[in-house]
Structures are given as structure tokens and as C-alpha cells.
Design a protein around this nucleic acid. Sequence first.
DNA 1: TTCGCTGCAAACCGTTTGCAGCATT
DNA 2: AATGCTGCAAACGGTTTGCAGCGAA
Lengths: 152, 152
Amino acid sequence: MTQKEAMTRQDDRTRRLTEALRDAGVRVTRQRAALLSVLARADDHPEAVELHRRAESELPGISLSTVYRTLSALESQGVIHRHQFEGAPARFEHAESAHHDHMIDVDSGEVIEFASERIEKLQAEIARELGYDIVHHRLELYVRRKGTGSDG
Amino acid sequence: MTQKEAMTRQDDRTRRLTEALRDAGVRVTRQRAALLSVLARADDHPEAVELHRRAESELPGISLSTVYRTLSALESQGVIHRHQFEGAPARFEHAESAHHDHMIDVDSGEVIEFASERIEKLQAEIARELGYDIVHHRLELYVRRKGTGSDG
DNA sequence: TTCGCTGCAAACCGTTTGCAGCATT
DNA sequence: AATGCTGCAAACGGTTTGCAGCGAA
């Protein structure tokens, strides 16, 4: 993908996120615009403080509470996802990509996405057999690079 | 199972938990004995405050910090597990039963255990293919009783 | 007798919230 | 002009921790 294509995709993403807000009848303030473009650009899973840091370079003075408030709003609009991994502050990602679960490298904190149709099906089966419907689920694999003994 | 058998199993469990502590070279104080017997008796997934409440009826005056400290100790001995379900304080269970995952009834908060050999295998496969070993995982199904519409 | 453990109160840390003023609509 | 949003600072809530004294070994 060329840099120009990347730019376009990112702008599209920002536009979609902005529309999501406008559709919900909320004001698109400078703070929100800043955060939206930061989120659109993010292909990792940053935490609130990191998002605040990035947003500040776009709109100096934006407050952490506004970041938190906006993240909560965006989450309830369904345009971003919040992940609470073990022993760490919440991490966020835009909801553009299809459903997937996460592997967390316990050494580096790196997050790797993966999807398994088969696991999803098995989960649904199990719930159904026990008389339940799945509202949502959480599957996290805490992993270590192969051959990286913990006795390093 | 008769009541007598239940008593015996519970006492066994307390004994094993106590031994785990003694083996680790830590003192078995009244507070710890109380918490151990509470844990041995618990077949649900209580949170720290609830465990404290139960322990108090056995040893009035035991402090919440001691409960937290002991839970952390027991966790690192591997004799209990700590679960951090979504939007709730940590819940604990003794590590006597075999590995399993959890379904959480989003309406009642009830925790249902389940195990799936097939899901476990798939997880390991996925991690391996990506060049990782699983250290541990977390699979939680947030569910609702079938036919219980959210528009209730 | 030793020194690990306890209770208390205060700190912690990520996150939320009350409020007065500001800026988007 | 109206009112939804912002920044600030303070509160929150679950959990951890420093400290002086207590009690298990």
C-alpha cells in the first residue's frame, strides 16, 4: 500500500468516526476531532494516557478527562472497543476491523490480533447447550515467544 | 453425597491449603486458618469483601487488608485463582478443581464453569503457528439465559 | 526471643465526576 | 443565545502499603 493510499484510508476512517458522532447528535468539538484523528491513525492498542499524549501534539492543552469522556462516548456508540488486559490500564482500538481476539506478549506487552471461526462456533455451542446466549466474550492468550525461557 | 462426606472433603481441602502454606514456610496464623477454611468451604466465586465477611464470622476483627494480603500470598503459591471479570472486583476460587473457563450471567452475576478440550487445543495451535507459547489464557463468555430478551 | 504477620490509616492509580466557564450549534 | 462540552480539581473504589505492636514458632 502506498503512502497516499494509507492517507486516504486514514482520512476515510476519521470521516466515518466523525459521522458516527454527528449522527449521534453530539457536538464535534476540536478536542473530539483531535482524538478521532488520533484513533483513526492508531493501528496499535494504546491506553488512555498514550492517546492523550498523541492528542496533545494535535491540540495542546486537551485534558485527560476529556479523553476519558470521549473514549467512553465513542465506546457506547460502538465505534471503538475497550480492552481490559490483565494488570494493565484499559487499551483502545477503533472498531473498523472485523471481530478478533487478542494475544498479549507477556514480555513486551505487544498485542497480536487473531481470529478463529472454529473457536467462536465452539463457544456458541457450549453456551447454547447450557441454556444461554452469548452477549459477548473475551478470549485472551498471554504468550511468550517460542524458545524464550522464563529463566532468561 | 452425604453431609458427612461433604464435611470430610471440606476438611481435607482445608488441610491441603494449610499444608501448602506450611510448606512455603509461612506462619499459619488464626487469620490465615480462618480464611483457609472459608476458602475450602466456598464452592462459588466470592470477592475479597465477601470473603472478609465470611472470615469475620469465624474470627471477628480480622481486617480486610489481611484478607487481601493472604489472598495474594495464596495466589502466588498457586493454591487459589484470582479472576478479574468485566467491571467487577476480583473474584477468587480455590485451585483444587481441574482447569476450566467461565461463563458470567450478565443479569445475575452468576458464574458457571465449563471446560472445552477442543478450544484449548485450538488456542495452543493458533499460538504455536504464530510463533508463541501460551503462558496462560482467559476465556470468559458473558451470557444471558436463553429467551431472556434485553427488552425485558 | 525472634521476626513474620496484623490492624489501622493513608497512599495508590486508573478512572469518573461536580462545577463554573467556554465554544459549538 | 442556548446548552453541550471542557478543564480543573476533587472524589471514587478496589487494592496495596508503611508502621508500630502483636503473637506464632
